[in-house]
Amino acid sequence: MSLSNRTLQILNVLTVLLLVVNTALIFLYAPLERTMGEVQRIFYFHVGVAWVGMAAFVVTLVAGVLYLRTGNLRWDRLGAASVEVGLLFTFLTIVSGSVWARPAWNTWWTWDPRLTTYTIMALIYIAYLMLRQGIDDPNRRARFAAVYGIVGFISVPITFFAIRIWRTIHPAVIGTGSETAQGGFDMTQPMVVVLLFSIATLSVLYVCLMANRLQLEKLAERVEQLKARILSA
């Protein structure tokens, strides 16, 4: 699960380089969108972080299932790290979405199904972290976190479904024009290229943060072991 120090450093440098290139692409290469103008450039970042946020929680789900199957604490560490990093991306998504929504929809926030579901998902994973904090025994913590990671993840698509049909049944609530605004522009070839590059870059950023997070966990464990050895000596 964990990389050597050297590979980790290479990964860090690579990530920074990619981020720089990505930013340059977004601001210099990607064409200006006609109706929304400059602000549309946040789209590449927004979609990228949203995608990674979702993917991070899928990793937690898979890690949870694998932990329950194998009982190997490695999977638990992976799952927990992925929630922490995933929450970071989730908040970036919500913030960048709000910044974009302000000029595009003329509001910071609408109760659109996607927004609402995403926020509830964030709350589920905050609860996940709080649950972990409340348990001392590492094995029990791992089991409970895995169980909640599975239950929480399953509820996300159902929540989305429930809210979406709720909104379509009540036409009065839709009036904000969010549905039309959302699919509101066609992408040209360079736009697609930049979007894909952005998603790839942010995925590398995710992997990089995860690798560092797991390394940190490993070091913390070493410290604990050393402390225990000193105390017992």
């Binding site: 239950v151 929480g152 509820s155 479904f161 809210i163």
Partner: peptide
Amino acid sequence: PILLLPVAVP
């Protein structure tokens, strides 16, 4: 409640 409410939204 913290664990249950977000899961019970649907």
